[in-house]
Each structure stands twice: as C-alpha cells, then as structure tokens.
C-alpha cells in the first residue's frame, strides 16, 4: 500500500537525521535542502539513495536537481510509489 504524504515526510526526516544529525522536526515541507537545512551535495546524493531503498522508488539522477525542497522530494516519492 502506498504511503501517505505525511508518512513519506516522516520517513524522509529520519533519513535526513541519520545522515546529517538535523532534528527530524526541522525537516518540513517548505524547507530548502541547501538554503535552510545546509545539506551538501554529497549528503543529498546519499539521502536520495537511502530514500530509494526505503520507499522502493527510483529517483533518476537528472531529477535530483529538481528536488529543491523537502516538499519536492516528498511529492516525487509519493507520486512514484
């Protein structure tokens, strides 16, 4: 069964927390990965990889650049399930 947007957000926040130490409560839909959460490109790639594994989706490499905000990623993952 596909996960809801809230469930994807929660799962993604856990991945971000494990990779960067950022508190899960700071990982909100309107937050920019780069500007708000200060996530570097190599961490972003790791987060994408872990998200693919966790949610069973494929995030094409040319799509990663479009995932500016947490909301972008949550929408992509929710729709790709």
């Amino acid at each position: 069964m596909a996960l809801s947007q809230a469930e994807v957000l929660s799962g993604l926040a856990e991945i971000v927390n494990e990779e960067t130490g950022i508190d899960t409560s700071s990982v909100q839909l309107d937050k920019s990965f780069v500007d708000d959460l200060d996530i570097d490109s190599i961490s972003m790639l790791t987060i994408v990889m872990n998200a693919e594994g966790k949610f069973g989706v494929t995030i094409p490499e040319d799509e990663v650049a479009n995932l500016k905000t947490v909301g972008d990623a949550v929408s992509f993952i929710t729709n790709a399930q």
């Binding site: 190599i42 790639l45 790791t46 990889m49 693919e52 594994g53």
Partner: peptide, 10 residues
Amino acid sequence: PRRVLPMTVP
C-alpha cells in the same frame, strides 16, 4: 553501482 555510497571515496 547505483547503491555505492557517495561518501565512499572520502
């Protein structure tokens, strides 16, 4: 190769 961690080299 898609599962090889980006942090592998450093």
